[in-house]
């Protein structure tokens, strides 16, 4: 039962990732693209955690945590750059 749930959720997340990709390519403004990228980070964290459940190790936790941190930092760096035209003032 858990195996089936994992397969279903993986399919859902893949669909979500393709939707984000569509917004990333289509997005009329650059802010839309940043938002799509941010959502993609979160969806990939979910995919990694799902794989961790599937193979039954806790090793992937660190990878997920790193993606979460780098995703936040890169989102705020991109926004800061768009706001000021400069990262370090």
């Amino acid at each position: 039962m858990l195996k089936w749930a994992i397969i279903i959720v993986a399919a859902l997340i893949c669909v979500a990732l393709f939707m984000n990709l569509w917004r990333l390519i289509q997005g009329p403004s650059i802010q839309d693209r940043i938002l799509a990228l941010d959502t993609m980070y979160i969806n990939s964290i979910a995919l990694i955690i799902l794989y961790g459940i599937n193979v039954g190790t806790g090793l992937y936790f660190e990878a997920a945590l790193l993606i979460a941190m780098l995703g936040f930092v890169s989102t705020s760096a991109l926004c800061k750059y768009l706001l000021r035209g400069d990262l370090i003032e």
Partner: peptide, 18 residues
């Protein structure tokens, strides 16, 4: 399994919203 599927559905809804 139910919690997993609920989580997945919410992730999908977020992307549908996007």
């Amino acid at each position: 399994a139910i919690v997993l599927v609920i989580g997945g559905v919410f992730l999908l809804i977020g992307s549908i919203g996007l």
